[in-house]
Design a protein around this nucleic acid. Sequence first.
RNA 1: AGGCAUAUGGUCGAGUGGUAUAAGACACCUGUUUUACAAAUAGGAAAUCAGUGGUUCGAAUCCACUUAUGCCUACCA
Length: 858
Amino acid sequence: MSEVSKEYNFSQVEEKWVQSWDSSIYHFDWDSKKPQYIIDTPPPYPTGDFHIGNALNWCYIDYVARYKRMRGYNVMFPQGWDCHGLPTEVKVEQLNHITKNQVSREEFRRLCEKLTFEAIDRFHLSMGRLGLSIDWSNEYVTMKPEYYVKTQTSFVRMYQNGQIYRANHPVNWCPRCGTAIAFAEVEYDSRTTTLNYMRFSAQDGEMQIATSRPELLPACVAVAVNPDDGRYRKYIGKKVTVPIFNYEVPVLADPVVDTSFGTGIVMICTFGDRQDVRWWMEHHLPLRQAIDRGGLLTAIAGPYAGLDVTQAKNRITQDMINEGIIFKQEPLEQNVGLCWRCKTPIEILSELQWFVKINSEEIKKTAEEIDWVPPHMQVRLKNWADSVEWDWCISRQRIFATPIPVWYCRACGQVLVAREEWLPLDPNQTQPSEKCKCGSIDFVPEQDVLDTWMDSSISALAVAGWPNRKDIRMPTQLRPQGHDIIRTWAFYTILRTKSLEGVKPWDTILVNGMALGEDGHKMSKSLNNFIRPEEVFLTNGADALRQWGAMGGSPGNDIMFQWKEITAASRFQQKLWSIYRFSLPLIAKVDAVPGQVDRWLLGELDSLIMKATSAMDAFQFDETMKAIRGFAWEVLADNYIELVKARLYGPDGPEKRAAQNTLYTALETLSKLMAPFTPFISEEIHHTLTGKSVHVQSWPMPSGTPVDPAGLAIKEIAAALRRYKAEKGMALNSPLPGIVVYSDQALETIDLIGVANSQVDSRTGSPLIEMKPIAIRPQMKIIGPRFKDKSGKIIKALSAMDPVLVAGQKANGSIAVPVDGEIIEVPAEAAEIVVESLSAGEAVDVLRLEKATVLVRR
RNA sequence: AGGCAUAUGGUCGAGUGGUAUAAGACACCUGUUUUACAAAUAGGAAAUCAGUGGUUCGAAUCCACUUAUGCCUACCA
């Protein structure tokens, strides 16, 4: 055997295996007869860094993938890249000092692709270094035609099924960027604005209305009051006149109106905010669009047309003050919706856009068919589904995204959606190969592109072989993701999979928490609590980081990054390495009959395997790792190895071989159990022992060896003797004058003699020591359910009885307890007797253990 | 403002109805060099389980309310 270094050199070992592993063992086999286990891996947005949060997500996936592989599944752990999106466009503009309109669409797209490919390369490096068992034969890149043909196909099919339509609909609009944006792209900032009190003239008098956006006055389509508000009841159903613009709008009643805000009367405009949209739809109000795509006021704003929002606000406010229409102003703390990119206040405009129909009920129903880990995460999806008010706007006014495969006939305006067999295509570069119904061949291409979620929401379908394979592998088995994107990625994926194939996308969704910094806040550069995985790779290695991911917390809970966890992980690896270093020259894989102590260890190993298996099946990685650490450290190192050292160092013989073989088995099994968590050190150990890779091995099965009670007793005696010596201030290897152990079993003494460095006599039975009952422990579990509300009194009375008397009665099967002058018979199990041993006057120390009594001569 | 979650020793964190030892880790204190490991080992101190009320024979555990924190969503005409 080669030299094993005293210290575990994680970087040498990890780098070695990163270099030499054959990644083809992780490839999914489309022809396999094994049960499939397909993971719908999140496709990250590659512009950015691979941070600790990513690392955590991918660790979770890798634990599962490796475990399932070892359990005999045909596992697919694919990796995709969600490329399209605004951040990349912005970055390209910054890096090249251009705006996207200064170069052609094709050129701009090319620049975005280049940046994205570079970013993907960086991710590849980090992911490899983390030891992820990704199946790179199933990699997908959403910006490549091979992938976006699927996005376009899904668009065409959903259009044909009537699930996609084009319509005028309110959208969030950034006037500066000139594009519709999703709710997720709106951020809020609190600002102080002005609340203006205005007079509207009504048929019977005057209505006073407060608004922070007087410039939307020409977009006013109604005013609303609360039906329960006695002040304004008389106006309901009547008309009022909009000042300055002089047209009449109805007065509506709506319970949502807050009677205590402002005057209790609301001006409904198209559109000031989301509530306006709700009212507009609910009450079927007309549309008066006062702001255009550029953020300028339209012709209906009369004298204010052509002004931008701020100018218009100032002018109209001043005019109304001058005319006495505004009679009061007060400051208002208000959260304003901003474009997250350019911080321009957004407007809600009605635009001709493409939409996907949202059927919340169907999504909720499908969500119920999926196993949520942890279960309460499903509630988040349901709440979101219930709060969705508009259909999903999927068109974006951008460049770097999947093109919408649609043209419009210049002659008659007819919409022409591409045929599936024409895809992939960009309508800006390709003309349709058929005429319009009107006979024209002159088409205008759709310039809008698809929302990025249209790409990523078919990830499950894409990895399962949709749409080309005859045997689409739906549903997939697992969706791992963070809880921050339940409302988007999970929601849209369920929607699309159900729409396109009528099935749920996954059997199980595993939701992991967010990675928090050491200060307990979400990791961010601005808080300076940001840790890069590379930092940990350098200081403690990937295995240590992976252990943190497993130990840090249970699924769904946020997990704090802590260096001390990393340190603890490293220490464990060092401990394991020490065990390995000690064992390697001594162990052997030989046939041998295990002794009592060996059978104890093998029994403990069995229960570790069973514990680890059930915890892994429930995605309880923390439980699994904890059990492994506990076994390796306390059971194996502190007890078993100490016990069998004498045998291992001793002459060859059946006893030595038994220890050699048992230790070998324990190490080999440990390397397998740890392989999903710490692939590097596990591989190093396993490979040295067997010459094979641990990552193609099967998950260990219990050998069926029960814990040998005699072996357990020996282990406890050894621990007691160690404690005894420590308390006496003796060196642990100093001999004792003589030891006699009493037990029900005939205990083997070979290991005890070695570990105590003393003569040991083993006898069956008990020593001549008087055992005196001194206390009674009532058993709540027995008494409670049987005696209910009397339990309290019985316990009190029982505890007060003479322990000697109770011990005698217990031996006879039942105990008579006097309660309130009445005798109640309680079963023998209702009381445990505490006994004290009285020394027989010999010069011995008595160590009383559960399964044995040890006399140590002084 | 709404939804969901969380609250356990100095710190982190298991435990989800059953005994007066509430796991473990880190930190702290004390002993010990024992032919793998002092980043070890043997031991110790340290928690009225956020508060109040309730259900129960019995509550860290279930329920209600309160307080604090986190996340998600919304934000005001």
